[in-house]
Amino acid sequence: MSTHLAPNMIIGACEWVALPELGIPRLRARVDTGAKSCSLHASDILPFERDGKSWVRFRVHLGYPEPVRDQDCECLLAGVRTVRSTSGESEQRYTIRTPIIIGHSRWSVDITLSNRERMRYRMLLGRTAMENHALVYPARTFLQGQPRLD
């Protein structure tokens, strides 16, 4: 008998997401079942200590192709991960854990911070974040509509 939960929603190849604890009410994310982890475009990434714990400060650039707004963020550091890009190169990335909202659903995900300025989508939603939460219908986009922050 499987102990996995059944996913509670169907998402498209792209979805609107919210990262409320980072002050991001809406962001387009590319759904990528080939990527293990989530990635968020960030710059000015600076680790620091607060009350004996490791934190990271960074800036998120919202909008494409040109940023229309910048959001300064701080988050408890979940760790540093080695991530292999699609070109096969490995790099160390700071990782945070924060709630995500897609449609009416909210759960916590790990997100690596990286430079995605050349990418059309400022966030990549990897398969680990979707596990037990969503099934992907790749022929459609934005099936869940805007995130519900209430």
Score class of each variant (00 low, 15 high):
residue 62 L to A: 10
residue 61 H to L: 06
residue 39 S to N: 03
residue 57 R to T: 07
residue 23 G to H: 01
residue 36 K to A: 11
residue 32 D to E: 14
residue 64 Y to V: 11
residue 63 G to D: 13
residue 92 Q to I: 00
residue 38 C to M: 04
residue 65 P to W: 10
residue 63 G to Y: 11
residue 76 L to Y: 07
residue 103 G to M: 00
residue 80 V to T: 12
residue 48 F to R: 02
residue 38 C to T: 05
residue 85 S to Q: 04
residue 30 R to T: 09
residue 51 D to A: 13
residue 65 P to K: 08
residue 39 S to F: 00
residue 55 W to Y: 14
residue 92 Q to Y: 14
residue 42 A to Y: 09
residue 62 L to Q: 15
residue 68 V to S: 13
residue 46 L to W: 09
residue 83 V to F: 02
residue 37 S to Q: 03
residue 70 D to S: 05
residue 87 S to N: 11
residue 38 C to R: 00
residue 39 S to H: 01
residue 96 I to Y: 03
residue 82 T to H: 02
residue 34 G to A: 14
residue 53 K to R: 12
residue 55 W to C: 12
residue 94 Y to L: 11
residue 21 E to A: 04
residue 23 G to N: 01
residue 87 S to D: 14
residue 40 L to I: 03
residue 24 I to H: 09
residue 82 T to S: 04
residue 33 T to F: 03
residue 53 K to V: 06
residue 67 P to D: 07
residue 96 I to C: 08
residue 49 E to L: 00
residue 76 L to M: 12
residue 48 F to Q: 06
residue 21 E to Y: 11
residue 68 V to K: 15
residue 52 G to Y: 07
residue 61 H to Q: 13
residue 24 I to E: 05
residue 43 S to I: 05
residue 34 G to T: 14
residue 97 R to G: 11
residue 70 D to E: 14
residue 80 V to N: 02
residue 71 Q to E: 14
residue 23 G to M: 02
residue 31 V to S: 14
residue 28 R to L: 06
residue 19 L to C: 04
residue 30 R to K: 15
residue 91 E to R: 15
residue 93 R to D: 10
residue 35 A to W: 04
residue 103 G to P: 15
residue 31 V to I: 14
residue 29 A to C: 09
residue 50 R to T: 11
residue 97 R to C: 10
residue 41 H to G: 12
residue 97 R to S: 10
residue 83 V to L: 07
